[in-house]
């Protein structure tokens, strides 16, 4: 054994001792794992940063990937909180029960699914039926909607996204469970909401949908109508359900939340947490917050 070996051994053992140390402190350090919706991942990040600021002994690990990913993780018990931008499906509840998991739902806010197009696109307003025609590929030119003579490029999220499931149900299937309509097969499936923003910002032909937290001045937001009144997604129109593509955002836990997870969820529901939801572009659960602003 040369000197090198001894030094290596020392470094190695210090690592092991180092690990032990954190382990013992681990008695007090609490970790909350949050996996799920990409739509609200930034909002949850903001809330947890403030929460950790007040409770430095808590560490929060946040991962996106889509609502489906979150719920699948909850079922396989690899997360404490699953965030979702859609309801939990019956199959998922069945699967969870078989694994001994009791999904417990908390609504933490609301969201409007915004339709965005390029800033140079003159089209301003579309009805749900028109959106249906666009996304199923029945109409393929912007000319049909008073725009330029350009082929429409439809952008969607991947199938793991809760926004995808919501949009498919409400727009592609027009809310009919029996409908067999599908997204038109040349729809681009992009892996994140930000990728949709990037593509729409540079592509005059594109239209995409995403949570209103991703709406920015780099893109133009379409006003949507169920029948006649074209309404833009904002806090008031979503809260009053006037905007036709409004939906709740959920936290799912295994049984009622306990311990630090409960404290965290309570924080997210508190006026402070709800204010952060508004700051990141979403709609709070309680109307009073909006009125205060």
């Amino acid at each position: 054994m040369g000197k090198k070996h001894i030094i290596l051994l020392l470094i190695w053992s210090s690592f092991i001792i180092g690990c032990r140390k954190t382990d013992t402190v681990g008695g007090q350090v609490k970790i909350i794992r949050i996996i799920g919706s990409d739509t609200i991942v930034n909002a949850v990040q903001m809330i947890s940063e403030d929460f950790v600021g007040e409770n430095p002994q808590v560490k929060i690990a946040i991962t996106g990937g889509g609502s489906g990913v979150g719920i699948a993780s909850l079922i396989s018990k690899t997360t404490d909180i699953a965030t979702a931008s859609r309801e939990i499906k019956q199959e998922e509840i069945d699967m969870a029960k078989r694994r001994g998991v009791e999904p417990n739902e908390t609504i933490i806010g609301f969201d409007g699914v915004a339709l965005i197009v390029n800033k140079n696109n003159p089209v301003c307003c579309l009805t749900i039926n028109q959106l249906h025609d666009i996304f199923t590929g029945k109409k393929t030119s912007w000319k049909d909607f008073g725009g330029k003579d350009l082929h429409i490029v439809t952008l969607s999220r991947e199938v793991s996204s809760g926004t995808y499931s919501y949009f498919k149900e409400v727009v592609v299937k027009l809310g009919k469970k029996s409908s067999t309509s599908e997204f038109s097969s040349d729809t681009l499936l992009l892996s994140s909401s930000q990728a949709i923003v990037e593509e729409v910002a540079v592509n005059e032909d594109a239209i995409g949908y995403l949570g209103m937290g991703y709406v920015s001045d780099r893109t133009k937001t379409i006003k949507v109508a169920k029948d006649a009144d074209f309404i833009a997604p904002d806090v008031n129109s979503v809260l009053s359900k006037q905007y036709p593509l409004s939906r709740p955002l959920y936290f799912f836990t295994n049984g009622p939340a306990q311990g630090v997870t409960k404290i965290f969820i309570d924080f997210a529901l508190s006026p402070e947490g709800q204010k952060l939801m508004v700051e990141s572009g979403f709609v709070p659960r309680i109307q009073t917050i909006v009125q205060k602003d």
């Binding site: 990937g65 699948a72 793991s160």
Partner: peptide, 11 residues
């Protein structure tokens, strides 16, 4: 890569 995260194991 795009779909694996969402699927429930065994489906």
């Amino acid at each position: 890569a795009g779909e694996m995260g969402e699927t429930v194991s065994g489906s």
